[in-house]
Write a protein that binds this DNA or RNA. Structure first.
Lengths: 217, 217
DNA sequence: CTATTTGAACTGACTGGTCAGTTTAGTTAG
DNA sequence: CTAACTAAACTGACCAGTCAGTTCAAATAG
């Protein structure tokens, strides 16, 4: 959750010509956190283009200038927001990576973690699916990178299954990873948006059907 | 959104695309078609909020006034665009509904049709996933309705499988439909956006893994 | 210990531009 | 003759980004 700002280029644009090292990130961290939370909520609901910087600032209890002080632009804020969310999700997935001895159980645990993450950050998945796959996306590089990190975790879990069980080798792993990630996001979103009565376990079982079809019987 | 007063009288003196779509159209149909194609492309790429009415009109080779003559508003245009796309997709899915005697083959055919549809209308899936699942969506009702129509077709195919084969009854059908639809969209979009080298057949096989896991062996 | 200074963090009015939707007067085609 | 369309100007709202000024905790000086 920390995800302290990568000391690289997009640091605060200090107006007084400061060289920009984080000497005293006292208030700043709390402010960034509030901005992340506020913008995750708003952007998740209405889309990146549908939310104004003024709204984000107001929701975070901060002035508009502060947004531009902490992030260089609206676009930068969103890029860092995406990274922030994926870091949280990855942290949760990796937290149980190897808790179970059986790779299918491990996979099930991972899917469960993903569903819980979507319960806790319902807006992140919305933001993800709304802005991913845009062709000349402003955040195309960010998405490609983050997507790869998520797929890598799924790939690890699938590999573990393939090592322990006989599986259908004719199925392309890449497509299988994509199908799994897609099912996770869409089942989670559908549950939130249209079918809140569906349980966590039902959703996990439906997604795990993919794995059961992958393993030969 | 502006003119929030109940001033319904602000509509054009002509029949804005509200009710009558009967024996009207001479040029209108061609114009609407061009507008559908142009806006599908643009909105699919940059999102509903990221495209201006002027751009759509220009891309369709039509004046801005024509957009407002045929559709009452940008929002209306998009709602009708969604319906238009789903109608095409449903038409294709139903065209092979019952071509195969084996329900698993029928399902595979349907998934294949869906992949072909996404090849032909690559922007529609983008529009769908970017605007679906928005919480207070302007087109929430439209989405709920269209989503139900798509799920009904998938449900029919799953039911046919469940009638002919022994299946895992502990899996909630609703979640299974959602997982299938999600996998279809995401695998298709991923192929277009990030992995164009993946074949149609690889993608179908990955999605069909869900069905193979549903059927008991 | 008190006074002064420093500068990172923050403020909010303002600017320049964009865009949905309207209007009007005229043109084209069925 | 009339529905469909054009072209261009206009409005009113809205919004990303800017910038001159303010705050305040910590550093430093006296």
């Amino acid at each position: 959750m920390s995800t302290q700002d990568s000391g690289a280029a997009a640091a605060p644009a200090a107006p007084a010509g400061a060289p920009g090292k984080k000497l005293r990130p006292a208030r700043t961290n709390a402010t960034k956190q509030r901005l992340f939370e506020a913008s995750m909520e708003l952007i998740g609901e209405r889309g990146a283009a549908g939310v104004t910087v003024d709204e984000i600032a107001a929701a975070a209890g901060v002035s508009k200038g502060t947004v531009y002080y902490n992030f260089g632009s609206k676009s930068d804020l969103i890029a860092q927001l995406l990274r922030h969310g994926v870091d949280i999700m990855l942290g949760r997935l990796q937290a149980i990576e190897g808790q179970a001895s059986d790779p299918l159980e491990a996979m099930e645990g991972m899917v469960g973690q993903a569903m819980d993450f979507m319960d806790d950050y319902p807006s992140f998945a919305r933001l993800w699916v709304s802005e991913n796959w845009r062709t000349p996306s402003e955040w195309g590089k960010v998405f490609a990178e983050l997507r790869e990190e998520l797929l890598a975790v799924i790939r690890g879990a699938i590999d573990a299954v393939a090592d322990r069980y006989p599986v259908d080798r004719s199925i392309a792993q890449g497509s299988l990873e994509a199908a799994t990630l897609g099912a996770i996001f869409v089942v989670g979103l559908d549950r939130q948006t249209y079918n809140p009565e569906r349980t966590r376990e039902q959703s996990i079982a439906a997604i795990m059907t993919i794995m059961r079809g992958y393993v030969l019987h």
